[in-house]
């Protein structure tokens, strides 16, 4: 086990919203440059867990974490960790595409501008690379100065992924990234995830079981704040160990 290259690890992780015990003793180790999917019914804790991975929950009143989350073997809740530095390392993409009301170009380089990068060549190169990585370049290269809000939903979501990539993170968190998209846009994002895992560690929350099957290497099934089962997606979808997992993925939950 120890020989494996784990990018992200949770050790005895507990999380609370006030008195509510949202995550119960989670232990999980996610491999580098692989896709890990979180599945489970609404309210099972999968999104909460995803958000603890880049401390998105810090702003929620009464939210509290116990245990450790290790990114490259370093506890991201450690006192010496700066949240803005962490977010550079761990990017995030949300359910609804949320481009800023700015041009396409400005959306992609937004993170760089915040970091104080002004060199036009650097900005232009990064924008092109990121847009190429998300297979958006050919579609938008002639209208980089147009508003991002004029793009289709699927394009907007790929733009948001490009924006996340522009600050060169090593981990990308995706919270139901295709649930607001049509099937073709969904397929494009899924292909994109498949491409991106060559360079990035990806964690995706999805309500779509088939999507977990298609895109992920490993799947974690959460239920009532517990991690019920975590294994290779192949195994999870052909011979899950726990009956609860089986009932959930076969749609017999209840």
């Amino acid at each position: 086990m120890s020989k494996k290259n784990y990018k992200l690890e949770a050790k005895s992780l507990n999380a609370y919203y006030g008195n509510f015990h949202a995550l119960k003793d989670i232990n999980i180790a996610m491999e580098e440059k692989a896709v890990t999917a979180f599945i489970g019914p609404s309210g099972c804790g999968k999104s909460t867990f995803l958000r603890t991975l880049n401390r998105m929950n810090d702003y929620i009143d009464g939210f509290r974490v116990e245990g450790e989350i290790l990114l490259d073997n370093r506890d991201i809740y450690g006192k010496d960790v700066r949240v803005d530095e962490l977010r550079k390392e761990v990017g995030m993409v949300f359910q609804k595409p949320n481009p800023f009301p700015k041009t396409i170009f400005e959306n992609v380089v937004y993170g760089l501008r915040i970091q104080g990068i002004k060199d036009k060549r650097v900005l232009a190169e990064t924008a092109e690379t990121s847009l190429r990585q998300t297979a958006l370049w050919d579609e938008v290269k002639d209208k980089l100065d147009k508003s991002a809000l004029a793009l289709s939903g699927g394009q907007q979501q790929r733009l948001c992924i490009a924006r996340a990539l522009a600050i060169s993170p090593s981990v990308i968190l995706m919270d139901e990234p295709t649930s607001a998209l049509d099937p073709i846009s969904t397929a494009k994002i899924e292909e994109l995830i498949y491409e991106l895992k060559k360079d990035y560690t990806i964690v995706i929350v999805t309500h779509n079981m088939q999507q977990a099957g298609r895109v992920s290497d490993q799947t974690a099934f959460f239920y009532m704040g517990e991690l019920v089962e975590f294994s290779k997606t192949k195994i999870m979808f052909t011979s899950p160990k726990h009956e609860r997992t089986q009932n959930y993925i076969t749609g017999r939950f209840g």
Partner: peptide, 9 residues
Amino acid sequence: CENLLALYT
């Protein structure tokens, strides 16, 4: 085949 059926519907 089993994996393809299970993972890709």
